[in-house]
Computed example of a mutant assay.
Amino acid sequence: MVDVFEQVEEELRSDRYKRLARTWLPVAAVVVIVALIGALGWWGWDSYQSNRAAKGAEAYDRGLEALRESKPADARAAFQEAVEQGNGAYKALALQQQAAQALDANKVPDAVRLFDESAKATRDPILSDTASLKAAWLLMDTAPLAELESRLTPLAEDDRPLHAFAQHALALARLQHGKAAEARSALVVLQLGQDVPDAIRQQAQAAIAMIDSGTVAALPKIVDAAKAAPPPAAPQVAPASQAASPASAPAPAAAPTQQ
């Protein structure tokens, strides 16, 4: 009698396991397939980005070499190839080089456009903020204050990598447009700041002295000196043969001088 009960119980367990299997095995299969597709998709995307980084690095290096050899046409072609084939970092850097070439040809509007495109091409805050800051400096003498403020205010936030440079540029823009009190307050903060580069601190002191003495005629010289001060260098790039990701990025071009 005990054997009969055990056999019945075993058959019931077997039926229960079969029902569970019919219910959950399709679900498990779908989960496995989705995970496999996701893994393959991520691998494909990573390979694609690595390939773009390598192509961008190679083209960018050829552009720099062409510049060193005084071959501007070859440099433009190489930088354009980096823009079209490179990943975000190398595309941004190549656009900045194209902007510098536009400045050499005295094509300021083209340079501003290329710097703006460079800022949008990468998520690296050092590269993007450097490009945005250069564009703002190029517009310093011609753009209305509202446009300069819209460009510089986000860059001047304390958590941005070039905030001291942007705060200085914003103060000088306001000073040029007659807002001396606002400009002086910002310049005093820069003068006393702990993490302010020496060049910016000295220019802030000069601007404060100019405001206090009423020597408005000295403002253009201060603006020109500020435009010539380069931002901090970005991390150096690995050789093109080693480039595999946008994490490596060469230092951006020096800040533009007055045209």
Rank of each mutant, 00 (worst) to 15 (best):
V108W: 03
W43A: 15
A249G: 03
E182N: 10
R184I: 05
Q259M: 05
I37Y: 10
K71E: 13
D3P: 03
V27M: 09
L170F: 02
S245I: 01
S14D: 13
A228N: 03
A199S: 14
S14G: 12
Q101F: 04
N51G: 14
D74A: 14
A28D: 01
R62W: 00
L148F: 04
A143R: 01
A225W: 00
Q242P: 12
L12S: 07
E9F: 06
A59F: 04
L114Y: 00
A244H: 13
G86C: 02
A228I: 05
I211E: 03
A92L: 06
S150D: 12
P232F: 03
R13W: 07
P231T: 07
D116Y: 00
A253Q: 06
G56M: 04
A171M: 01
A131P: 05
D129Y: 06
E6H: 12
P154Y: 07
Q85W: 00
L103M: 10
E84W: 01
A73G: 06
V4A: 12
W45G: 10
A59V: 09
Q259P: 15
P231N: 03
S70G: 05
Q202D: 10
R68A: 13
L155S: 02
W137Y: 06
R151T: 02
Q242R: 08
P246F: 01
L64C: 09
G44T: 13
A180K: 12
L67Q: 08
L93F: 06
E84N: 14
A225V: 04
A131F: 04
M140N: 04
Q85A: 10
A166K: 04
A206R: 04
S245K: 02
I200M: 02
V4I: 14
V32P: 06
R160V: 03
G44K: 08
A21E: 06
I200H: 01
T23G: 05
